[in-house]
Design a protein around this nucleic acid. Structure first.
Length: 863
RNA sequence: GCGAAAGUGGCGGAAUUGGCAGACGCACCAGACUUAGGAUCUGGCGGGUAAAACCGUGGGGGUUCGAGUCCCCCCUUUCGCACCA
């Protein structure tokens, strides 16, 4: 690269014109460090009259070093922040660290360095990298989640959750990752494996855990998605599926024969009560509490049920639940269908889940694929109770061969269903649910797939849960005045046997706040997703000592105008933080329902077709790119290679191309900077006097077209790849017209071009833009940055004077005709038909039609 | 299996509403300047042809004066969901 070639080093006049990003960037980096407020989009107070804009990128985990995915994410956010800043907005653009988590403990074990030290060291390094890359963050608002100043408020929120009944403790089957040696939330299990250890199967363990009642907000979290039209549809769909709302009914089936509790029933959940006359068995989950009683003392049955249970557990671990073969066993007992008083056999089946609905279903093999498979295998009765109704056709009397469609269309028709015959499916659901309710054996209900959020983690490096267990008083919350519950510094971390905090007596042993007697502290810590559920509120006032946030300040800044991050957080972080916002709203400390009105999910950065990873050896280091090409080239390439929503294949040759473009830009501006200095900016428009060259007018037009294109990309689809391409085109045009542009006659325009070019570059290449901006000022610019004003375009100057019409004969391109832009249609038609090539092509034929598309094309249709 | 998105030169990608396919960049080729070039500048660059014609946006149909774009069928890739009763 250029630094190895130094031919011009002893030629001062040329040396000046060589683009040396390292020199420029070091210079501005130092300046921004000493005067951050002038060069980062640092917002005015929350009482500012200026319109606010809160742009946020997801905060990183301080793993050690930035990777290209970070750089891309922040390059997008930074471009937007700078653009909004130049448009006069009061811009909030903060950054912080999602600093708790397991890697710090692993590093502690491996390298014998305390997690805190490891984490803070990584933060220092990554922060330096961010600054070197020129991201304009307001570091006075930095949030680091592993510091007591922050996690104190996690604990405070936990106490509030507990107070409101939204945090509770219970024993339950939980997901356990043996690699992490801790519990995982449902959201953290992907295909039966740990979200951090994709190869590690999650086990099921029975443990006492703290849960947060996210399900209290199921309905609201779902309904809120409809208001988020600034979010990608994909993310909204994923959240809808995750919440999994399902309307249906609970129906009680009495158990036939003797039972220990008189009147014992099996309650099933169904969304298809209309098919209940086709229910030919009841299926229970192997863990259903009634199973033990129903199968009595038969050891063979017990063994069989246990086998079913194991099959189900294995299937869950394997992740591919649907592919597992259905098995079941008949309990020997029967239940009574409350609609027709029929006896139906009760089975236990491995495909029935205890944690959805009631863990019991009515099996309708004729209208449900799964039930059909099962019934087919065990030769159970199938009864068709619903048919498509065809106009004019009498109800079918014979029974079609199952499987039948789960028929739900408007023209469906019930049969074999007693008094409900002849109803359509939808009518039947209404009437049969009402019937069940009136007769006291059923009721309307809604179930959700969303579960409460298990937040206990048996790890050290997280927020201690502020709870105390007293032998006398039971569970006692730590009083607010005693917060924060500090993490002990000296600790021996291993991955075995429960939380490392259990082995720290001075942490574990406390006195009960109620009775003063000896008590035990909770040793589990909080899921780190608690930290990221509300961090963006803290940015609005990161120094606040006595409260997590100041409501008036939050009211000013929220909701976040633009949130930017990876789609991998579509469910986890983005559903927890939506919950947390509602929880805070109900506490009365914020007033918005949703944290962010717009969400943008950027594509991944890959290399050689794969995600960058150390194992694969295809990692591209940002430091290396910055050292070789500079921060500006690295940033601009990450925006230029493709549009921000798409996957980006990192190609070093592409970075070189961008470097060349920035070099060309640098040289053009610098070698004309003197002219700009001598001629103050006074351009209104370049009035054509008839004497200037068309090339000069062409530059003026291109200038305005470029402003238009870049501005529209910011306002619309964020296709910065085309914005940058547009600026490249402008620079190419300038090179072609330079000799005609540098005359005193065109000085006004040239000065305008230099200014505009510099301003257009500012959101993308801030170092270079500031350098060039400074170079073209007549006066010293101390205390000012390039981000003064976004350039405006003049539509009439952007318009072409002449238009080259494409001329087609029968849809095939045959000629071009140049005409004045404002030519009326009949003139266009006339001139085109008079064209030599057109004449030749239509000779001897009859012109049937001439289609004129104004400003673009003419199609002559001939026979 | 269900759902969504995407398939364009050697490569990354342009082409918001149907209107000149391949902008911009990479790679490559040629020329200029040079002692030199991996610097810089200028030009070329989908296939095909001497030049045309002609063929070209995953494949096959269709609508239209005109289709990368709209409709139908199919193929491939990526992502999401997947016994949710």
């Amino acid at each position: 690269m250029s630094e190895t070639i130094n031919i011009t080093a002893n030629q001062p006049e040329q040396r000046e014109l060589r683009y040396e990003p390292q020199r420029i960037e070091e210079k501005w980096h130092a300046r921004w460090e000493s005067q951050p407020a002038l060069y980062a989009a640092q917002p005015a107070g929350y009482d500012s009259k200026a319109k606010k804009y809160y742009v946020l990128e997801m905060l990183p985990y301080p793993s050690g070093a930035l990777h290209m995915g970070h750089v891309r994410n922040y390059a997008i956010g930074d471009a937007l922040a700078r653009y909004m800043w130049m448009n006069g907005y009061n811009v909030l653009h903060p950054m912080g660290w999602d600093a708790f988590g397991l890697p710090a403990e692993n590093a502690a074990i491996k390298n014998n360095v305390p997690p805190r030290e490891w984490t803070l060291r990584n933060i220092a390094h990554m922060k330096a990298q961010m600054k070197r890359l020129g991201f304009a963050y307001d570091w006075s608002r930095e949030v680091t989640t592993c510091l007591p100043e922050y996690y104190k408020w996690n604990q405070w929120f936990f106490l509030k959750l507990y107070e409101k009944g939204l945090a509770y403790r219970r024993s339950s089957k939980v997901n356990w990752c043996p690699e992490c040696a801790t519990v995982l939330a449902n959201e953290q299990v992907v295909d039966g494996c740990c979200w951090r250890h994709e190869e590690t199967k999650v086990e099921q363990r029975e443990l006492e855990q703290w849960f947060v009642r996210t399900t209290n907000y199921s309905e609201e979290l779902l309904a809120g998605l409809d208001t988020l039209d600034g979010w990608p549809e994909k993310v909204r769909t994923m959240q809808r599926n995750w919440i999994g709302r399902s309307e249906g009914a609970l129906v009680d089936f009495k158990i036939d024969g003797p039972v220990s509790t008189p009147g014992a029933r099996i309650t099933v959940f169904t969304t298809r009560i209309d098919t209940i006359y086709g229910a030919t068995s009841i299926q229970l989950a192997p863990e259903h509490p009634l199973v033990t009683e129903l199968i009595g003392n038969d050891p063979a049955l017990h063994a069989k049920v246990e086998e079913l249970m194991r099959e189900q557990a294995r299937a869950k671990e394997a992740g591919d639940v649907a592919a597992v073969e259905k098995h079941g066993v008949f309990t020997g007992r029967f239940a009574i269908n409350p609609f027709n008083q029929e006896q139906v056999p009760i089975w236990v089946a491995n495909y029935i889940l205890m944690d959805y609905g009631t863990g019991a279903i009515m099996s309708v093999p004729a209208h449900d694929e799964r039930d059909y498979d099962f019934a087919h295998k065990y030769d159970l009765e199938m009864r068709v109770v619903i048919l498509p109704r065809r106009t004019g056709e009498p109800p079918a009397s014979g029974q079609p061969e199952p499987p039948v469609l789960p028929y739900t269309a408007k023209d469906s028709l019930l049969i074999n269903s007693g008094e409900f015959n002849e109803l359509s499916n939808m009518e039947a659901i209404e009437k049969m649910t009402a019937f069940a309710e009136q007769n006291g054996f059923g009721k309307r209900t809604v179930t959700y797939r969303l579960k409460d959020w298990g937040i206990s983690r048996q790890r050290y490096w997280g927020t201690p849960i502020p709870m105390i267990y007293c032998p006398k008083d039971g569970i006692v919350p730590v009083p607010e005045k005693d917060l924060p519950v500090l993490l002990p510094e000296k600790i021996d971390i291993t991955l075995q046997g429960g939380s490392p905090l259990e082995r720290v007596p001075e942490f574990l042993n406390v006195t009960c706040p109620k009775c003063g007697g000896p008590a035990r502290r909770e040793t589990d810590t909080m899921d780190t997703f608690v930290d990221s559920s509300w961090y963006f509120y803290r940015y609005t006032n990161a120094q606040l000592k006595d409260r997590p946030l100041d409501t008036a300040t939050v009211d000013y800044w929220f909701p976040i105008d633009q949130y930017i991050g990876g789609v991998e957080h579509a469910i986890l972080h983005l559903i927890y933080s939506r919950f947390w916002t509602r929880f805070m709203r109900d506490l009365g400390i914020v007033h918005n329902d949703e944290p962010a009105t717009r969400l943008f999910t950027q594509g991944m950065v890959i290399k050689d077709g794969f995600k960058m990873s150390k194992n694969r050896g295809n990692v591209v280091s940002p430091d290396d790119m910055v050292a070789r090409f500079g921060a500006d080239s690295t940033r601009v390439y990450s925006l230029f290679a493709t549009s921000p929503d798409r996957e980006l294949e990192w190609q070093e040759a592409g970075v070189e191309g961008v470097f060349r473009f920035l070099s060309r830009t640098y040289r053009f501006v610098m070698r004309n900077a003197e002219l700009a200095k001598k001629n103050p900016r006074g351009y209104t428009y370049f009035a054509p006097k008839g004497s200037e060259s068309p090339r000069v007018r062409s530059v003026e037009r291109k200038l305005h077209q470029t402003i238009k294109r870049v501005t529209e990309d910011f306002q619309g689809r964020w296709h910065f790849n085309t914005s940058i391409a547009a600026i490249m085109e402008l620079v190419n045009e300038l090179y072609g017209a330079e000799s005609e542009l540098v005359t005193q006659q065109s000085a006004d325009l040239l000065v305008e071009v230099l200014w505009t070019l510099t301003l257009l570059l500012a959101p993308f290449a801030p170092f270079l833009a500031n350098e060039l901006w400074q170079a073209i000022q007549a006066q010293p610019t101390d205390g000012l940055s390039v981000h003064q004003q976004w350039p405006q375009y003049n539509p009439s100057l952007a318009k072409e004077d002449e238009i080259t019409y494409a001329v087609q004969i029968n849809g095939k391109l045959r000629s071009h005709v140049i005409l004045p832009a404002d030519s009326p249609e009949d003139v266009v038609r006339e001139r085109v038909l008079a064209d030599e090539k057109v004449q030749a092509a239509i000779a001897g034929k009859q012109v049937a039609k001439v289609i004129v598309v104004a400003g673009k094309l003419v199609n002559v249709v001939v026979k």
